[in-house]
Amino acid sequence: MTTRNPSLEEALKAAQSLMNDRLTAVEEHKRSVDAEQEAREALAEAERDSARTWAALLAAGWTPAELKKIGFAEPRVKAPGRPRTARSRSGKDADGAKQSTELPTQTAPDFSTPSEHASASV
């Protein structure tokens, strides 16, 4: 069986057809990636909004237990806010106990050689 030798025009047309199929696949994938990115951004925005409205419910006096009884789940994302510190301005820790401001004492390292230890013990 012999293969026929196509003309230049036929070869280019066949190659262009194959290339078009490949380019269509790239185009479809790009659209899919863009849609995924848009969906992720929309989800992130919805999660932030849910966290904000949850915080508003708590500020209005609702407790998480009451909201769970209603059927609401606590949001996976917390509302942005002021960062919490481990120590308050009053100098007390989270349990209300007074925190010490004293630094721990340190002893100087022993740089003497073993022979100095032997002569000191004689």
Score class of each variant (00 low, 15 high):
Met1Tyr: 13
Thr2His: 08
Thr2Met: 14
Thr2Asp: 14
Thr3Cys: 06
Thr3Gln: 13
Arg4Pro: 01
Leu8Ala: 11
Leu8His: 08
Leu8Ser: 10
Leu8Trp: 15
Leu12Phe: 09
Lys13Asp: 07
Ala15Gln: 13
Met19Asn: 15
Asn20Gln: 07
Arg22Ala: 09
Thr24Met: 05
Thr24Phe: 04
Ala25Ser: 12
Val26Gln: 12
His29Met: 05
His29Ser: 03
Lys30Ala: 08
Ser32Arg: 10
Asp34Asn: 11
Glu38Phe: 12
Glu38Thr: 06
Ala39Cys: 03
Ala39Asn: 12
Arg40Val: 10
Glu41Gly: 03
Glu41Val: 07
Ala42Cys: 01
Ala44Cys: 02
Glu45Ala: 14
Glu45Asp: 15
Ala46His: 09
Ala46Met: 03
Ala46Phe: 01
Ala46Thr: 07
Arg48Glu: 11
Arg48His: 05
Asp49Ile: 07
Ser50Tyr: 10
Ser50Gly: 03
Arg52Phe: 14
Arg52Cys: 06
Ala55Trp: 09
Ala55Ser: 12
Ala55Leu: 04
Leu57Ser: 01
Leu58Arg: 09
Gly61Pro: 06
Thr63Leu: 05
Leu67His: 03
Leu67Gln: 08
Lys68Arg: 15
Ile70Gly: 10
Gly71Gln: 11
Ala73Gly: 11
Ala73Leu: 11
Pro75Lys: 07
Pro75Glu: 04
Ala79Leu: 00
Arg82Asn: 08
Thr85Met: 09
Arg87Leu: 13
Ser88Ala: 10
Ser88Pro: 00
Asp93Pro: 06
Asp95Glu: 10
Gly96Val: 04
Ala97Gly: 01
Gln99His: 05
Ser100Tyr: 01
Thr101Pro: 00
Glu102Asp: 02
Leu103Asn: 04
Pro104Cys: 01
Thr107Ser: 04
Pro109Val: 03
Pro109Phe: 07
Pro114Lys: 03
Pro114Thr: 01
Ser115Asn: 02
Ser115Glu: 11
Glu116Gln: 13
Glu116Trp: 06
Glu116Tyr: 12
Ala120Thr: 05
